[in-house]
């Protein structure tokens, strides 16, 4: 079983027209920050149609709740709410987040995203680096503050290019 094939998860989401935004440290990595993470965080659109598409893909990924020994699968009601679904899949850990950053969902985040292309042409929306930095500043937790120097330095290096 592979434990960190985040690009494969993203490619599968894109191929199935799942609407989502990559957030968290994976967004930072995609923007060029030399950091690491062991899970992929996405904020998904919570419309009934998109939740249905997401559920289908999660089924293909054999997704179950990762902190529950009962191997429970996520359901429509879970993914339709604002909460965080912490899952393990055959391609690694995946957090499907209804909202982040003081209740901001997919629609609120979309204006603050950029499109990135994966090999094969799949397009994914990624939270912009300035928006990621602002979200971590607002969150203010120790783990968010610890990431800020690297993210700010990455933004600075990008702007110098």
């Amino acid at each position: 079983m592979s434990r960190a094939q985040f690009a494969e998860i993203l490619r599968l989401f894109a191929a199935n027209d799942v609407e989502f935004v990559v957030v968290g440290m994976t967004a930072g990595i995609l923007h060029g920050a030399p950091v690491t993470t062991i899970d992929l965080d996405v904020v998904h659109r919570r419309s009934p149609q998109n939740v249905a598409r997401l559920l289908r893909v999660l089924g293909e990924l054999d997704a179950v709740y990762r902190h529950d020994p009962r191997q429970l699968r996520p359901e429509e009601s879970h993914l339709s709410g604002p909460g965080h679904q912490l899952l393990v899949t055959r391609f690694g850990d995946l957090d499907c987040l209804g909202t982040i950053d003081e209740g901001r969902g997919y629609e609120e985040l979309m204006p603050h995203t950029v499109e990135m292309r994966l090999s094969g042409g799949a397009a994914v929306r990624v939270l912009s680096l300035p928006a990621l930095i602002e979200a971590k500043e607002r969150a203010g937790r120790a783990k968010d503050l610890a990431a800020l120097p690297v993210l700010r330095a990455t933004l600075d290096e990008r702007e110098r290019r």
């Binding site: 592979s2 434990r3 960190a4 094939q5 985040f6 690009a7 994976t26 990595i29 995609l30 923007h31 060029g32 920050a33 030399p34 950091v35 690491t36 993470t37 062991i38 690694g92 990135m116 292309r117 994966l118 090999s119 990624v126 120097p149 690297v150 330095a153 990455t154 290096e157 990008r158 290019r161």
Partner: peptide, 29 residues
């Protein structure tokens, strides 16, 4: 001045987004 390795960032910026992700995936694995 914060101890951030700027050379490492410049190296990451030379990669495509997918190449950056693949590098982290290999490390995590």
């Amino acid at each position: 001045e914060n101890g951030v390795d700027r050379a490492q960032i410049r190296e990451m910026l030379r990669l495509t987004p997918e190449e950056r992700l693949r590098r982290v995936e290999a490390f995590v694995e």
